[in-house]
Design a protein around this nucleic acid. Structure first.
Lengths: 241, 241
DNA sequence: ATTAATTTTTAGGTTTGTCTAAAAATTTGA
DNA sequence: TCAAATTTTTAGACAAACCTAAAAATTAAT
């Protein structure tokens, strides 16, 4: 009971902080927070370095340093000079809000407007910064409260909670086992178009028939009907269950 | 025939210019162009003054002057110091593109997401700057190529052509005549909510029953069923056909 | 037709987010 | 372990879009 109370209080306070912060968080800052979140995930929770951020923000390390100082002042990141950064609770909340919007818009673009999954990233990068809580929630409802986006990535709920997803790389699955394709680890148009060409989409069943000893490439049975060749590079970037 | 050729050439060239300009036209510049377009319309094609623009951009006259110099350099406006501005052909094209997106998104927000017509302006102000031709055209198709937005304002087509709309103010309609509500001249939430409260919406039929000599207020028959009172202020801002 | 009032522009500054070049800290490796 | 290589930060500048204060042009009024 008292744990519930504390939880509630924490939520209320966080909301208050977030409402204040939101108004003070620019397009650019939102982007940094989003990228820090994603790189931290990739790193397994470890600090993200300045250079890593420079790469992903398409800027120079010096610019990143400036921004990190600023985000730290606003208490959105934990920052010790030369030691990389992680998000604070507030920073994470904002980042998850941006990711939520990005992924919801991606669902809209594919499901409602008929875009291909390889065409939506740049548009969603813009839409993710539209600032209207009501819009986000109505969009979510309109789309049927989807849990995953067109690439299989989980969509956080309005409170920032991610739906759980137990999956592993196809490259980690033993031979002869049948699995379902549930996501991708790389979002480049080239990779996605490659999958399209091989008719591999979310929901496809994949049974591993053969793994080459030479180059670790695969021959798999797709949807119980056709055999296709899959390079190790592809197998490492397919998420299955 | 040769006129067609010239027309085609003009279109191709304009397209070329626009594609180049688009990339160089910022969020803020787009806003100025949109506002100049709308104020010019209101003025019946006359020049828009610096002060007028300052009001509508929520900035100071000095800032407007700066921006006008810049837009003139880019050949987006016709600008003679102290004499106000109008849009060039290229400026108009960009402005109409922004207005097109604004109005299409408004249709989306009302028709698909269930927003009220009094809640959509601020959101559409953000969405109108999303930069993707494919998105705009797919959205247009998804919405069924609407000609008018939820306030009855005409939506320009992809080439910038406005659907024609013959309408007049309710305050100009003679007594006893029956007309159809097709638009509003003011978009403030207060006005729109006032109409909601009186169940006046796009498509309502209105028959003028009585005009008060004292204050020029109206009693009208709404949808052939109920009599409602309408102030002159409201009548002056309702468009009917 | 001048002066007064108003509008518009210019001049000089600020903030945000970027840059290059150079200095400082950390990491690597002989 | 300590010098070299790498990473990160600081210093100083710049462009965009805004500001205030003051100067210039236009418009209005006696």
């Amino acid at each position: 009971m008292s744990k519930n109370l504390i939880n509630w209080l924490e939520n209320v306070l966080l909301q208050g902080i977030i409402i204040t912060l939101k108004a003070m968080t620019s397009f650019t800052e939102e982007n940094y927070l989003k990228i820090i979140y994603m790189l931290t995930e990739l790193n397994g929770g470890n600090e993200v370095s300045t250079n890593e951020l420079a790469e992903h923000t398409q800027t120079k390390a010096a610019s990143v340093s400036d921004m990190l100082r600023k985000l730290a002042e606003k208490n959105l990141i934990n920052y010790r000079k030369y030691q990389g950064v992680t998000l604070t609770k507030e920073g994470q909340y904002i980042a998850l809000g941006v990711i939520r919007k990005h992924r919801l818009w991606e669902v809209f673009l594919v499901e409602k407007l008929g875009f291909g999954w390889d065409e939506i990233h740049d548009i969603a990068e813009q839409l993710e910064h539209i600032d209207s809580k009501e819009l986000t929630e109505k969009l979510d409802k309109f789309l049927g409260n989807p849990q995953f986006d067109p690439h299989g990535d989980p969509i956080p709920d309005a409170k920032g909670k991610m739906p759980s997803m137990t999956s592993c790389k196809l490259s980690e699955v033993p031979i002869d086992q049948t699995v379902v394709m549930v996501g991708v680890l790389v979002h480049s148009p080239a990779f996605l178009q490659h999958l399209d060409k091989n008719q591999i989409t979310l929901g496809s069943t994949i049974k591993i028939q053969e793994i080459s000893e030479f180059d670790k490439s695969y021959i798999v049975l797709l949807n119980n009907s056709q055999s296709v060749f899959i390079s190790n590079e592809v197998a490492k970037n397919l998420l299955v269950k």
